[in-house]
Design a protein around this nucleic acid. Structure first.
Length: 777
DNA sequence: TAACACTTGTTTTTT
DNA sequence: ACAAGTGTTA
């Protein structure tokens, strides 16, 4: 083996070993920032250059479309555009959707099947629950769909579901005995709509491989080497697909990090990676432990956190980068102030470190948290972009238009039909649709079929309605007739014009209407872009079908990417997986938010949340700031919050800031306000007398002589002394004249520059100390 | 049938 | 707070 081959010379020992081992199964445990993508890309290039594999013989599976694109472009750099393009590289869902379209007939589908996204699935579940006249308080559509999804991911068919006494028992306990029946009907409806949901793409691939030995054999022979990224996030269905494809040649390499498994809520099974070796006993294990991304402080802080988890593969992630700054911990009085703190710090770091806005990311647990940061950033004229939330393709107007496309490509698509039959309004309302649905069900036909020949299916409607139906049918039929010949862009334009969407959009002059019209234009632009891109690859006749099958598996990741530029990135921790930024802010580190309430009950859930924070911290290259707010606006109410338990899990040696004293290091004397506060809370909650009260008193004395606080005092409030200059939320800037006790609380008299003299109850006052500044902020 | 007011749940994360 | 869903009225 030529050791100074250009492909290998830029790799460290462990990376190179992982790349070079190609003759059997391998498991690469890749710590955060250890060059996992680089290894995968090099390995694929190596397979082609050194092992003589053709690109189309390599199957490379990633978790997101974005990761797939990234991988392809890196391989293009290593092995050339042409070969990169011919690889089978994509997400599980997109790759196997492609295969399923090729083989659709063998499993009873047409190759033009549509793909239901989760909201389509939810709608269908809701519809069925209603049809069965069940109580949707007991049978919550979301939860029901979740159960169905779980069953599918475990490859439990409706028949198996019905046959299982265990599941029946479980459902009876949950007071949802008819879940299996809902599942059965749901699956039937998907079938008659010639549609699959996300989970079906994996389940039917397995069914295909199970029932059609020759098909499985064909793909086994084609894919001479299989690589899977983020293996810790695969579910059973995905695992089994990989296992079967690799069954004969065992040439498979899975890469992942058990410490970054964050998708168990949707069926990912960490055992897949933990027990990979038991499936392929001769598996070679490689560990990538050197982190090239982050400073030592960041790596160490993350390590100290993840150490608190029980089940994990031993590894020693280390960094040889500079020590760097400590993780910065900041607390805020409110979510609002948290926004200001983050915005302020971004502005400061940008100037001090000459960073661009694009070097910053704000990561939160839930999408709902984004708003407050948007406002704060806007106020400070800081440009930003948001990933996630409602993705472009999820927006109402876009879904409506896409539904037209869906119905054109697959007229049996029930969801699409229901969506557009009366959009724009054409006098075909709920009553008519219900009648069509009944007729359809009686004759085991699709809604579209009934619409085409009302009398044959015994559909009784008055002549006016019949006319409207006919008009609608003719309109759609014209599109359908041309779907296989017409260019995607031109047909799409025509759909928007002839359907009346264009007119409706123009008439609407409300601000939302304008933005909707803009979105429609954007969609047309996207279609045009798609057509052009395909043309460049030599695909001359690009049809609507092609665009649709591409688009139904696209998600938020792609929508946000269009306008990059120098902007601060806002996203959930989940969507940040696989990304990195110089300066990372992790916000909302509060109990019941991060970790989320839902996860708290089980230790497994809690460990997953901890891994989630681990993922967040390890996104940072140079600096990492963690914040939490003592009160937060949620569900229309202000809620008080306590700091996340995870803050105590991080070794304070690597932390700086008001919370560094969360668990004081021995060198520090006294306790922080935070700790006192938490003790306070537990004390009042149990109304018990503290055993170590004396010590508590001493610590308080350092901050507030002769006082035991009756309420949590912020560090700022404790540190406040006569003569300090403060900045108050309402009153602005002012000087502290005196501080005295009133009852159990401390009260400050402050002379404000503009608002005059005021008394502030320190327990409640919202202010920050400007002079002298606290801990460098 | 459509527009409007009212009620309800929702907020954990995503292919 | 907010969006989506429901029911009521014209």
């Amino acid at each position: 083996m030529n050791s100074d081959h250009s492909l290998l010379c830029r790799l460290n020992g462990a990376q190179r070993a992982a790349v070079e081992f190609c003759d059997g199964p391998s498991l690469v445990i890749a710590g955060a920032g250890s060059g996992k993508t680089r290894v995968l890309a090099h390995k694929i290039a190596y397979l082609m250059e050194e092992q003589g594999l053709q690109p189309w013989q390599i199957l490379s599976l990633t978790f997101t479309n974005k990761a797939a694109r990234e991988m392809k472009s890196r391989i293009a750099g290593l092995a050339g555009e042409e070969r990169a393009r011919r690889l089978w590289a994509g997400t599980f869902h997109s790759v196997f959707a492609r295969i399923l379209r090729n083989e659709a007939e063998t499993i009873g589908f047409q190759s033009n099947f549509t793909i239901f996204d989760s909201s389509d699935s939810g709608n269908l579940v809701r519809l069925i629950i209603r049809e069965m006249e069940l109580d949707d308080k007991l049978y919550k559509p979301g939860a029901v769909h979740g159960q169905i999804s779980k069953a599918k991911n475990s490859l439990i068919s409706p028949a198996m579901y019905a046959a299982s006494t265990e599941l029946a028992h479980y459902d009876r306990m949950a007071r949802r005995p008819l879940l299996g029946e809902i599942y059965r009907r749901y699956q039937l409806r998907l079938g008659s709509a010639n549609s699959m949901d996300f989970d079906d793409l994996l389940m039917f691939t397995n069914i295909l491989f199970r029932d059609r030995e020759e098909v499985l054999e064909r793909y086994r022979n084609q894919f001479r080497y299989i690589l899977v990224d983020e293996y810790q996030d695969t579910n059973f269905a995905q695992h089994l697909i990989v296992k079967q494809l690799a069954e004969t040649h065992h040439r498979v390499c899975v890469v992942g990090d058990d410490a970054q498994s964050i998708y168990s809520f949707r069926g990912a099974n960490i055992d897949n990676i933990l027990k990979f070796k038991s499936n392929f006993p001769e598996t070679r294990i490689f560990k990538l432990e050197q982190n090239y991304r982050s400073t030592q402080n960041i790596v160490n802080a993350a390590n100290s956190l993840i150490k608190k988890n029980r089940e994990q593969i031993f590894k020693n992630v280390f960094s040889e980068n500079e020590e760097g700054e400590k993780v910065c911990l900041r607390s805020a009085y409110s979510d609002f102030e948290e926004g200001l703190i983050v915005a302020g710090r971004i502005a400061r770091i940008r100037l001090e470190k000459h960073a661009g806005y694009g070097d910053f990311a704000i990561l939160y647990r839930t999408n709902a948290q984004s708003r407050i940061f948007e406002e704060a950033l806007r106020k400070n004229n800081i440009p930003y972009k948001i990933y996630g939330g409602l993705s472009f393709y999820q927006r109402r107007e876009i879904k409506d238009i896409i539904s037209y496309f869906r119905l054109i490509v697959n007229p049996d698509d029930e969801e699409a039909f229901r969506r557009i039959i009366n959009y724009p309004a054409r006098g075909l309302g709920a009553v008519t649709v219900a009648r069509i649905a009944v007729a359809a069900q009686q004759h085991d036909a699709s809604l579209w079929q009934v619409t085409g020949a009302p009398s044959e299916y015994g559909l009784e409607v008055n002549s006016g309605t019949a006319g409207k139906l006919k008009t609608f049918h003719t309109l759609m039929q014209e599109f359908i007739d041309r779907r296989d010949t017409a260019n995607a862009f031109e047909l799409a334009q025509e759909v928007i014009r002839k359907s009346g969407i264009a007119r409706a959009a123009c008439d609407d002059i409300t601000p939302e209407g304008m933005s909707r019209a803009q979105n429609v234009q954007e969609l047309l632009g996207a279609i045009n872009g798609f057509v052009e891109a395909q043309r460049e690859q030599g695909e001359e006749n690009v049809r609507l079908t092609d665009f649709l099958s591409e688009v139904s598996l696209l998600t938020d990741q792609d929508a946000g990417a269009e306008e990059d530029g120098e902007k601060v990135t806002l996203m959930t921790v989940h969507s940040a997986k696989g990304l990195e930024f110089d300066h990372v802010f992790i916000v909302g580190l509060e109990e019941d938010l991060f970790p989320s309430v839902m996860a708290k009950s089980e230790s497994r859930g809690l460990e997953e949340e901890r891994r989630l924070l681990y993922v967040a911290i390890t996104r940072a290259r140079k600096s990492c700031t963690v914040t939490w707010a003592k009160s937060r606006f949620r569900n229309g109410q202000i809620n008080t919050a306590s700091p996340s338990r995870f803050l105590q899990d991080i070794d304070p040696t690597f932390v700086e800031g008001d919370g560094a004293a969360l668990r004081p290091s021995p060198a520090e004397s006294g306790r922080s306000s935070m700790q006192a506060w938490r003790e306070q809370r537990t004390a009042t909650a149990t109304s018990a007398v503290r055993a170590d009260g004396a010590e508590a008193k001493r610590s308080v004395q350092t901050a507030a002589p002769s006082t035991a606080p009756s309420a949590p005092l912020s560090e700022e409030a404790q540190a406040l002394k006569v003569g300090h200059i403060i900045e108050h939320e309402r009153f602005g800037r002012g000087k502290v004249i005196s501080i005295e006790m009133s009852g159990n609380d401390r009260r400050a008299f402050v002379d404000f520059e503009s608002a005059g003299k005021k008394q502030l109850l320190l327990k409640f006052a919202r202010f920050s100390i400007v002079d002298p500044p606290l801990s460098g902020e």
